[in-house]
């Protein structure tokens, strides 16, 4: 494929070099309930290099948040179980860490921004204290030094340092999300997991926060996993994309791979469901039906019941296929060399 980015072309070959900060392999996360098992994540693999941004895209229930929680070993157990897989953060295996090691890793090597800034902050602590808390713990600074560092972090996310003595209710939604980002970045993590960081914000505020996140990421060299359902956000901040459906990555590649030459029928369906801002007369082509029940996933392709290209063979389990050095796909139909989706939109401009 011609449009493979220079940084992507070598990604697979040198997966284990020093630049790789996160490597997830065959991760399976289930939630075992009394009479059924929710199969949230069903064998996903991806890796992330220093400074890279991966967009994890999918709809409600695709397993995006479970994946992020597993990386921090924060899946609530019970009912959650990380059935198998390995998660390697900067050379250390997360699933083998002791509780003490986990505490050292969380917030220091990997930190997370939660979706809702309104509930992510402690209402009875000043924002300064909340930022200083993790600095004090991880960097071993005194209370006073941590507060000074906390004020610097506030300035970094565009809030005057003197506001560090204020409480969360004194901030607007966009400001609160900036505070949450300041907490996440306080110890200069290698990997930042952002779970829908802007979906609760208004559009003009979303634009400000995304601009700021991208600037900070470039400045600090943090690798970022952007969990979102918004393909526009992905186009703006990510350099690679993994599309998730029913706990599996169905298409994975550089931004150019997935947005310019989408290949999976589900990816096509996502693009065709969005109103086209340039052609409002174009009819929306929704994906028919609903996500499968995660307690009763079919043995074959989980998208098969909704897929307009489905054939008998799709009911059998399917293997990951590499289209190019960067572009991977989970779709049985591509066994036929002639098979193409008839995407009408999505070509390069």
């Amino acid at each position: 494929m011609e449009n493979v980015g220079a940084n992507g072309a070598t990604r697979d070959s040198d997966l284990h070099d020093a630049e790789t900060v996160l490597d997830v392999k065959d991760l399976v996360v289930h939630y075992v309930l009394e009479d059924e098992t929710v199969e949230a994540v069903n064998g996903i693999s991806f890796s992330l290099k220093k400074g890279q941004t991966l967009g994890l895209v999918g709809e409600t229930g695709a397993g995006k948040t479970s994946t992020a929680l597993a990386i921090l070993n924060l899946v609530q157990m019970p009912p959650g179980v990380i059935k198998s897989g390995t998660i390697n953060v900067c050379g250390a295996e997360v699933l083998k860490m002791t509780p003490k090691q986990l505490e050292k890793m969380r917030g220091k090597d990997v930190s997370m921004i939660f979706q809702d800034p309104m509930t992510a902050l402690n209402p009875v602590m000043t924002v300064g204290e909340q930022i200083a808390e993790s600095i004090k713990y991880h960097e071993g600074l005194s209370a006073k030094e941590s507060m000074i560092k906390a004020e610097e972090m506030l300035e970094l996310v565009g809030i005057p340092g003197i506001r560090s003595t204020e409480y969360p209710h004194q901030f607007s939604g966009g400001m609160k999300q900036r505070v949450v980002i300041a907490i996440a970045l306080a110890c200069n993590p290698q990997v930042l997991l952002a779970d829908e960081p802007t979906s609760a914000l208004d559009v003009t505020i979303q634009a400000q926060v995304l601009d700021m996140m991208r600037e900070l990421k470039d400045k600090l060299g943090t690798a970022l996993i952007m969990i979102t359902h918004d393909l526009g956000v992905v186009a703006k901040v990510c350099d690679s994309v993994a599309v998730m459906y029913a706990g599996k990555i169905v298409e994975h590649g550089t931004l150019e791979d997935v947005f310019n030459t989408p290949m999976h029928p589900y990816t096509e369906g996502l693009f065709n469901s969005l109103p086209n801002i340039e052609d409002s007369a174009a009819e929306l082509m929704p994906i028919p039906g609903l996500m499968p029940d995660p307690t009763k996933l079919p043995p074959g392709c989980a998208f098969e019941p909704r897929c307009r290209y489905a054939v008998e063979a799709c009911k059998e389990p399917c293997e990951v296929r590499s289209i190019s050095g960067t572009h991977k796909l989970l779709c049985t139909r591509y066994n036929e060399p002639e098979f193409r989706i008839d995407m009408e939109r999505g070509e390069a401009q």
Binding site: S172, G174, I205, D211, G232, E256, F271, L274, I277
Partner: peptide, 25 residues
């Protein structure tokens, strides 16, 4: 103008030039 330019278009390279607004509502 600011609202329109804040729309994130799901296309590669479509979201470069934007009118940023300062402050909040």
């Amino acid at each position: 103008k600011a609202l329109l330019s804040a729309i994130l278009v799901p296309k590669v390279g479509a979201n470069k030039d934007r009118v940023a607004l300062r402050g909040e509502l």
